[in-house]
Design a protein around this nucleic acid. Sequence first.
DNA 1: TAGATTGTTAATCGATTAACAATC
DNA 2: TAGATTGTTAATCGATTAACAATC
Lengths: 216, 216
Amino acid sequence: MDDKGISKAVIRRLPRYYRYLGELLEEGVERISSNELSEKMRVTASQIRQDLNNFGGFGQQGYGYNVPYLYTEIGKILGLDKTHHMIIIGAGNLGQALANYVQFEKRGFKVVGIFDVNPVLKGISIRGNEIRMMDELPEFLETHDVQIAALTLPKNNAAETADMLVKQGIKAIWNFAHLDLDVPEDVIVENVHLSESLMRLSYNLNRYVSEHKEKK
Amino acid sequence: MDDKGISKAVIRRLPRYYRYLGELLEEGVERISSNELSEKMRVTASQIRQDLNNFGGFGQQGYGYNVPYLYTEIGKILGLDKTHHMIIIGAGNLGQALANYVQFEKRGFKVVGIFDVNPVLKGISIRGNEIRMMDELPEFLETHDVQIAALTLPKNNAAETADMLVKQGIKAIWNFAHLDLDVPEDVIVENVHLSESLMRLSYNLNRYVSEHKEKK
DNA sequence: TAGATTGTTAATCGATTAACAATC
DNA sequence: TAGATTGTTAATCGATTAACAATC
């Protein structure tokens, strides 16, 4: 797969293409042109064609794109044809929400363990996974094949936990803690900073209000 | 405030500046230069100065930036000096996680109501808010001042719920459902698409593996 | 005053859009 | 073959970085 030097902007859009194609697939649509898709997704047709051509010529002149084929191919690019084992560190509401989210497993992300420091949670079962205590984690990682760790714990423990995970060979961290993790460059960090998302919403809300005022 | 035509890229970075300045503030740091901050945040000093200058000259030549002042100013730009009332639609794990997150209230986001369709949840109290049933929502919105609605419910009900919220005068939607909402242009939508985030992680994980293989 | 560092202009780089030849 | 639509090159637009004069 020739995916060197693909820009982050393209990668950011790829899952959205995948989502729209999945919907078309469910509706039984067989083929779609970049123009039709562009209207649905409210992006330019040019951008769709450019984006897809980063990975190969998935379309056909005069016909457009075959929906089932393109859906599968984008799935492959995103690695959704492989199974990934994930553990969740922090069994609070957020950790439990992730553990309960059935859809992830359909995309190949299988939760194989949930950990917390709180002894009250020990043994509680979430979709077949009993919550384990953090001190069991090192041994767990030695005996299980795990690629992804979701960090859904408070900020103050996140940095040292991440260090530990990296030492134990975790290759990707899905980070929900409100800090930037410092990890070796071969470890992937995908951040979900909810408070930053909320602040952007707040910015736009207030901007609208002030612009509206000025017009009056 | 002259905040017209500020690019999205700048807005995306603003909460991160705010976070770093908050940390510096806690450490008691009084002043910082764009250069020092650039090393901490791993962005260019030039970008920091450009970004901040979109909103005004917050620094001083020969001195740098006053940390408490800059922190406060960015807070104002983000609208964090105002209180926003938020309701949460969907009291599952994710909705409860948001309702429980104390930090939001410190930033001026006050949860004033939590709603769900599931009668089993009715009356359960989360940080002082009893879960209400969805049919109470219209009256609630008429008698309360609410700006933000967090949508933490399944995809299939999200679109019609959003329509209803907009009709009731909600001006901003924090959307966790896996679809793009179709709302009037004066309504702000901030999306948190967790499955797309996980797919980006997956992409990067697999990209690393394949590049690594090629090198061998 | 001299040194430091901003604010801001200019240069570069990258991403998006437009255009059209290739081709199904 | 004619029409449609891609793949791809070229043009435009926007964002980032570099440079430096202004100024504290």
